[in-house]
Simulated scan of single mutants.
Amino acid sequence: MLQIDCSIKLNQKIFKYKHHFELKNRCIGISGDSGCGKTTLLRIIAGLETNAQGNIKLNNEALQLSDENFIKPAFKRDIGFVFQDTRLFPHLTVLGNLKYALKRATTVKFSLEKVVEAFSLTPLLQRKPLMLSGGEKHRVAIARAILSSPQLLLMDEPLSGLDSAQKVELLKYLKYIKTQFDLSIIYVSHIEDELKTLSDEIIYLN
């Protein structure tokens, strides 16, 4: 269960969020027009928007309680985040990026071998990000997030910037996450077909 009741002012606009998400092994899709605050919602949950005011709890554990002046640092929230731009470490190989996630995991739920096999990464392990295609970078970024063994995986338009063939291929891997890994996912996209394919429930932001 994720409970969020908070607001934030950005660029003279006030965004208010009040949601209870039933998460257990489910994918919650988040949709809405451009600028409605989809990415901001993910950043607040992840602890990357520290100016947000209000309360957030994940599985009854407080992540933020503004009345008590408490905010849990992002690196302690046990939340994985897949960004649109992948944010792989350019100086590390694919293997180095994956091993970094394992080192940061508080509890290791998935082996490196299982995740590498699931995302067909063996031929890519010794390459650096500059040597990867867009689809390959996204696969590595998702695999890295999974290897951190998070309670919750946040995905911000992970198919953005890919061509049609790459999107079809990556969708297969995203479906695999739902069936093979015990992960709860909040998935942001403005593509309706994409959300219907992956989500157990879709929430539309105004």
Rank of each mutant, 00 (worst) to 15 (best):
E22D: 08
I185M: 13
L174D: 13
I30K: 03
I146D: 00
V188Y: 05
L130W: 14
L130F: 14
G134H: 01
I56R: 00
F15S: 02
P73T: 12
I44P: 07
S160D: 01
L2G: 01
N59A: 14
F119W: 09
I4S: 04
R26H: 11
E136I: 00
F15W: 15
F110H: 15
A105R: 04
L132E: 04
L198Q: 08
K109M: 07
Y176I: 03
T86N: 08
S149I: 03
K99C: 07
G35Y: 01
L112S: 04
R104I: 11
L171M: 09
D67A: 01
A118V: 04
E113T: 09
L125H: 12
R77E: 05
N60L: 05
L95S: 11
V168Q: 13
F70A: 02
P150W: 00
K137F: 01
F83T: 06
T106F: 03
L102G: 06
K16Q: 15
S7Y: 12
C36W: 01
I4Q: 12
T179W: 07
L162M: 05
F83R: 08
L183D: 03
D182F: 12
I79T: 09
Y173F: 15
L121T: 02
N59C: 10
N51L: 11
G134S: 14
A165W: 10
Q180D: 15
K196D: 11
G29S: 07
I14D: 14
L2Q: 00
R43G: 00
N60T: 10
Y173H: 15
I56H: 01
I177S: 06
G47F: 03
D85S: 14
E49T: 05
M131Q: 15
P129W: 01
C6T: 14
S199T: 12
T107M: 01
G29W: 02
T40M: 15
L153T: 00
S120Y: 13
V108R: 13
L183S: 05
L205Q: 09
K172C: 11
L112E: 13
Q126K: 04
L121N: 07
N206Y: 12
D156M: 00
G54K: 00
T122N: 10
I191R: 14
N59H: 14
